[in-house]
Nucleic acid binder design. Structure first.
Lengths: 184, 184
DNA sequence: CGGCAGGTCTTGTCATTGACAAGATGCCTC
DNA sequence: GAGGCATCTTGTCAATGACAAGACCTGCCG
């Protein structure tokens, strides 16, 4: 549709995701993205007001994809939802990094807020559609959000030969089970 | 000791903490910090190699303070350790923001790694000094790390009239207790 | 007492960046 | 076919991080 580029907005978002995956969300440069897309250094301005606007779009897309992933879980027991959360985070590291880094986005952006709320609603709903009580829902969210964060910060990694999904399953299984007192 | 400034290194770190609390760790500017400290724009270079070096120092200090806070917990049940973790995060938001934001620091800095490991050891130790099993320790760490992150990202806030400590206690109590099936 | 060595800070400079202003270019509608 | 508009370009500016070279103070050695 646009005359030079089939879809510059999408192209810039994709370039941003690549750049974030390579050097982190802090290091992205609008001019670098424009260069990779083959357009001039001011082209991104019209699609995203400024750099924060571009990252806001990435975050909103991330929350939407996360909500989609959660909605797609058929067995809506918390452990399965939690596994889906962690799998999303590790398979969309660029999105998740922007989503969880404060100060990068316009926090009051309507599209962003709406997407966040949709994901939140999905997480807080029980298998039969009832709402979980606050502390339980928050504990579950904290658990999977924290595991995702630790994985992406590199403070934790799955055992060799194992994978993220197995790790997430083991961890979510600890919620609501008695704590074993010893190693073993 | 230094001739112009009693302790420029500490002054810059404190200025950085203030700036991070105000505008987030991404927005800090070395030149701005130098201005606040009343020194020239190149003064910070000698104390911290570069901007990343300064943030690395902040992160290392943060992990050390966290380890100190965890070591100071006398009742070493996980719930109390977890409460201390969350209280640290919310009372040292600037430190914690740098600690949990990837790409800001030299991840392989020896002092940083050592401080991280000290905090990790403290968290993974049971009341009697035995090690927790991996999944349990990781679930606990994920839980409190995630709650801290959600609080600092502004995605969650304590109920009015309540406080962070009560919220943390309610959430850590869900680890190893049966999940209530319904609200109330 | 004199100077010398090194850590500390300053001045000067450069490429890069984000943001803005103004203009060019192609497409669509009336 | 002529205006109107979204899209993109060129040009510019202040701010920034990093680096180089030099000035300054301190403390130590002879």
């Amino acid at each position: 549709m646009p005359y030079h580029h089939g879809d510059l907005r999408r192209t810039l978002l994709d370039a941003a995701l690549v750049a974030i995956a390579e050097h982190g969300p802090v290091a992205v440069s609008l001019r670098e993205l424009a260069r990779r897309a083959g357009v001039s250094h001011a082209a991104p301005t019209h699609h995203f007001r400024d750099k924060t606007g571009l990252l806001t779009a990435v975050a909103a897309e991330g929350w939407t994809l996360l909500a989609d992933a959660l909605d797609a879980v058929t067995d809506r027991e918390f452990s399965e939802m939690g596994v889906a959360y962690v799998v999303f985070a590790t398979t969309h590291p660029a999105h998740f990094a922007v989503m969880r880094t404060p100060g990068l986005v316009h926090a009051d952006d309507p599209a962003l807020v709406a997407a966040q709320q949709r994901a939140g609603r999905s997480l807080q709903t029980e298998p039969d559609g009832a709402a979980r009580d606050r502390a339980t829902a928050l504990a579950g969210w904290s658990l999977v959000h924290g595991l995702s964060a630790l994985l992406l910060e590199g403070l934790v990694a799955p055992d060799p030969g194992s994978d993220v999904e197995a790790l997430a399953r083991a961890v979510t299984g600890r919620l609501g089970r008695p704590l074993p007192r010893r190693q073993g």
